[in-house]
C-alpha cells in the first residue's frame, strides 16, 4: 500500500466487478417499484463507474492520480443527485401520498 504500485490484481477482474455491479444497478433501476430504491440503484451504477475510475488510475497504461480525482468528483455529483432526488421524492409524497413508481404515471388512467 502507500506510494509504490505493488498491486498485482489483474485490471480485467476489477473491470468485470464494475460491469457486474453496473448491471445489477441497471436491473434494480428498471424493475424496482419504490422510487427510493430506483434512486439507490442509480447510486449503485455510479459506484460501479467509480470502481472503474480508481482501477484505471492505478493499473492503467500511465498510472497517475487523475482517475482518483475524477472519482472524487463523481462522489460529489452523486451526493448532489441523491439530495435533489430525495427532496423531489418528499415533495411528491406530500402531494400524492405514495412513493410507488407506477402511481406517479400521470398518463395512465
Amino acid at each position: 500500500m502507500g506510494g509504490t504500485g505493488a498491486i498485482q490484481i489483474p485490471t480485467g477482474s476489477i473491470l468485470a466487478l464494475g460491469a457486474i455491479l453496473f448491471c445489477i444497478g441497471l436491473y434494480g433501476a428498471l424493475t424496482k417499484r419504490n422510487l427510493i430504491m430506483v434512486l439507490v440503484s442509480i447510486e449503485l451504477m455510479l459506484n460501479a463507474a467509480n470502481v472503474n475510475l480508481v482501477a484505471f488510475s492505478r493499473l492503467g497504461v500511465s498510472p497517475n492520480l487523475n482517475g482518483q480525482i475524477f472519482s472524487l468528483f463523481t462522489i460529489t455529483v452523486a451526493a448532489a443527485e441523491i439530495a435533489v432526488g430525495l427532496a423531489l421524492l418528499l415533495a411528491v409524497f406530500r402531494v400524492r401520498k405514495t412513493t410507488e413508481v407506477r402511481d406517479l404515471d400521470l398518463h395512465r388512467r
Binding site: G2, T4, G5, A19, I20, C23, R58, P63, L65
Partner: peptide, 23 residues
Amino acid sequence: GVTLLFVIRGQAWPQGDPSVDVN
C-alpha cells in the same frame, strides 16, 4: 453484462508498472 464481460476478457489490459509512484 455478458457483452461487457466478453469485451473485458477479450482485451489485453495493461498492468500497472509497479515502479511508478502515482503519489
